[in-house]
Amino acid sequence: MKTRITEMLGVQYPIVQAPMGWIARAQLASAVSNAGGLGIIETSSGELDAVREEVRKMRSLTDKPFGVNIAQAFVRDPDIVQFVVDQGVQFVTTSAGDPNKYCAQLKAAGLTVFHVVPSLAAALKAVEAGVDGLVVEGGEGGGFKNSREVASMVLLPLVCSKVGVPVIAAGGVTCGRTMAAAFALGAEGVQMGTRMVSSAESPVHQNWKDAILAAKETDTVFLNRFGPGPALRALRTDKTTQYEKAPPDNIMGEFRNALALYFGGDMEASIALSGQVAGRIDEVKPVAQIIREVVEEFEAVTAELGARFGRSREPAHA
């Protein structure tokens, strides 16, 4: 499978793993890279000493390409660009902030830079800043969101029609059929978050994985639409159902106990970020199986569509 994404990233398949705080570390990211996709190491936890160790682990677990994310709103280290450059990676995604902040420095160091965008205006700003590509993130995806969320079905073709850089689609992607849909809308790669959280190699507690498996398509909530702080999409729990109507004054304060949920399994201790695709996931699978099945279904679906709707029509006769 060849797209501009596979050529730029040096990967077999244009499938990227989302850079989820505390989760997107060597155990999960190496499994993605070894399966032919691109694993990403997070920095949104702010634990840069731990991140440095995770990068070291990655090099012992895979010889395939991988990248690092800079979540600008959550990383306060003024030397974050040099930190990423020092890790020796060739690909970085920037998110949760102004693309102009780090793009020039990263590109000057020889890195390929993609910026995560939730709107056309943000996409155009990132392209003007000089990014190599975009991660276009629909509002149905999990995690921190634009308060005025736009679904991928609308956002993706809109952005792809206005920019010339390659696009990775994020939000709503969990299988080959949704990957094919993203490509039909103009993307050349996809990013998966919730599907990877629920994988066998994901380090999160089994209670979180079980909650994803049990979730219906309506079992996420969109929180903090009116601020202050970021909006976000998460799994529905007693806590988040309450916060849906009455969010706390500081939504980010809820992540002080994140590790008790992420790795301790207390689903009410914090907020379990998740996309709407939780309603389509019903089995924990190894990453290699997930990626293999996504690619096989993608190829089958695109071939089927070509066979059903790509027939040449006979010219009309006078």
Rank of each mutant, 00 (worst) to 15 (best):
F144P: 08
L120Y: 11
R56V: 06
V81M: 01
L235D: 09
R148Y: 15
S152G: 14
G46S: 12
I80E: 09
I290W: 03
K101C: 01
D77S: 14
Q82D: 13
S202F: 12
A307F: 01
A129Q: 13
A300E: 02
P157S: 10
Q82S: 10
L259N: 07
P65M: 09
Q90M: 09
P99T: 06
P14T: 13
G138N: 09
A50Q: 03
V190T: 09
V113D: 05
D238M: 12
C175R: 09
P248A: 03
I281A: 02
D266I: 11
V131M: 09
K285M: 08
L213S: 00
N207Y: 08
M196K: 05
V221P: 06
T174V: 15
L235I: 12
A258R: 09
A278L: 01
D132E: 07
G265A: 15
T237P: 06
S147A: 15
K245C: 06
A182N: 03
Q72K: 14
D282F: 15
V150I: 15
Q105T: 05
V117K: 07
G176K: 05
L305V: 13
E293P: 03
S274D: 10
V92H: 07
I41H: 10
T237G: 08
P78I: 06
L223H: 08
V16H: 00
R311I: 09
V173N: 04
I70A: 07
I281C: 02
V55C: 12
L28W: 04
V135I: 15
F309R: 01
P78R: 03
S147E: 11
M267F: 10
L38A: 03
D219P: 06
A246L: 08
T178L: 14
W22D: 00
P230F: 12
G172E: 11
S33F: 14
R308K: 02
L158W: 10
A123V: 15
T93Y: 08
M196W: 05
P248D: 02
Q206A: 15
S202T: 12
G142Q: 08
V32D: 01
R308C: 00
P19K: 10
D210V: 04
L48V: 10
I23K: 03
A29K: 06
C175M: 01
S152L: 15
A215N: 03
V301N: 00
A123K: 14
E244H: 05
F74M: 13
L61F: 12
G253W: 09
L48K: 07
P286Q: 04
K2E: 13
A300W: 00
L185V: 10
V135Y: 11
V284Y: 02
K285A: 04
R256C: 01
P65D: 09
G275C: 04
S199H: 06
M153E: 07
F222D: 08
F226N: 10
L213K: 05
F298D: 00
T194G: 13
P247M: 10
R195M: 08
